[in-house]
């Protein structure tokens, strides 16, 4: 098997703390098969001249392991139901792109959380990232796979009016230092201001992931744009997207932008009119 040339698994591309960066550009020679392990996701890519095969499987066990472009076993492909993509011309260029979830993520705090009137807190909430497989020049997207497929959930005032989202639980960490460095989950800083006169009980929190951009911090943590929630009264909640986590969380500096929001930026007015993002 020929060696896959890649700049990404060069030690120079790893974060200072050694956190490997699985996203970026690779090159696979004809007949080459490479495997990635990105947390619970096992990804296998094979190039056969002008054909690409993409196969993946998700581990049931919670694992944070990251392995990058290791020699893959083509014998595993048939058991992983690979998808085959045929091109006119052979091109070994491959890009793995980190993306945020394609639907909003609804998280519940692991413990009930209440914010007294006049208080302001920043919570760090994490959600799984997606891996987009792109090949050739110009880049053609072959697949987009969740590193951990979250459960579906419904968010809305009734069972016929609402939106399908992904479900998650959060420890709602208060401090940046407490956020675990994981290369397969992105952290969204959420600033909550309770300007109402009563206690704000936060039961569910809907993170508008398709509206947020993805960044990587120098220490390898993945961050999304920050979200600011201002509760003006029991019936009025204002939600705004910060331009980057830097403004939402003062601790996050020196970010590199990895992916733009999936949805075109909404006008600020439209975003602030959404009142049922938080319950």
């Amino acid at each position: 098997m020929s060696e896959a040339s890649t700049s990404d698994h060069d030690p120079a591309r790893a974060a200072p703390n050694g956190q490997p960066r699985w996203w970026g550009d690779y090159r696979l020679d004809a007949g080459d098969c490479r495997a990635w392990r990105i947390g619970p996701l096992q990804l296998l890519l094979q190039r056969d001249e002008a054909d690409w095969r993409v196969a993946y499987a998700s581990s049931a066990e919670a694992t944070d392991e990251i392995r990058i472009a290791e020699p893959g076993d083509p014998a595993l492909l048939p058991g992983m139901s690979p998808e085959r993509f045929s091109f006119r011309r052979a091109d070994g260029r491959l890009t793995l792109q980190a993306r945020l979830a394609d639907r909003p993520v609804v998280v519940r705090p692991a413990d009930p959380l209440a914010i007294p009137p006049g208080e302001e807190v920043t919570l760090y909430v994490s959600s799984p990232v997606w891996v987009e497989v792109l090949v050739g020049r110009p880049l053609v997207s072959l697949a987009e796979i969740a590193t951990h497929a979250p459960s579906d959930t419904w968010f809305g005032p009734s069972t016929y009016g609402g939106e399908l989202c992904y479900a998650g639980r959060t420890l709602a960490r208060r401090h940046y230092e407490d956020v675990q460095v994981l290369a397969h989950r992105a952290v969204t800083p959420v600033e909550i201001q309770n300007r109402a006169e009563d206690l704000f009980r936060l039961e569910r929190l809907k993170l508008p992931m398709p509206n947020l951009a993805l960044f990587v911090a120098p220490d390898g943590r993945l961050f999304s744009d920050a979200v600011q929630l201002t509760r003006l009264s029991p019936h009025e909640v204002q939600v705004t997207r910060k331009r980057s986590p830097e403004r939402g969380a003062q601790a996050v500096k020196g970010l590199d932008r990895l992916a733009s929001p999936r949805l075109a930026e909404e006008p600020a007015g439209a975003l602030t009119r959404l009142t049922r993002w938080f319950e």
């Binding site: 497929a149 979250p150 459960s151 959930t153 419904w154 479900a167 569910r204």
Partner: peptide
């Protein structure tokens, strides 16, 4: 239901 990814968490 919690383990089955097809089951919605809410409702």
């Amino acid at each position: 239901a919690d383990r089955n990814p097809l089951c919605l968490t809410e409702p």
